[in-house]
Amino acid sequence: MGFDAITNQNGWAMALVGVSIVFSGLLILSLSIAQLHKILDIWEKKGDVYKKIVEKREQKAKKVQAYKDLTVTEWLEISVKQFNILVQAMDDPFALPVLLDVAQKRGLHRPHSALTEFLKIELIIPDGNGYYRWDKRVFRNILKKGEGQ
């Protein structure tokens, strides 16, 4: 009887460990359930992620193909070099109308056609905020291809 009976039958330890196990069990369950909807969200959006990866790959393949198909004419090579000088003097990113304006003022040959071609071959790429960037890698490749042709 009394506290001695509890001590003799190891009651204190059983109660303490028992309570801890119940708490741990429900705590683990609670933490797991709290993450469940987040995991499900990722799982449900897996289609979108896959779609984005495929789109990116296709874009890259298109770009490679466009570059392979590109014939670097004398006019294109000169235009690329001239525009490169203009772009270096401008802010990065730059506004396309400003570049066009500068090119016209400097008397560059067919600036509209040149910019359209640059956008097609992704020498000029939009930054998503209404401005554009000059892709130096594409610029170097064009020059290299021009030398090869």
Binding site: M1, G2, F3, A5, I6, Q9, G11, W12, M14, A15, L16, G18, V19
Partner: peptide, 11 residues
């Protein structure tokens, strides 16, 4: 668990 202890204490 407290009742468990109480029951042990009561014999």
């Amino acid at each position: 668990f407290i009742t468990f202890l109480g029951a042990l204490a009561l014999g």
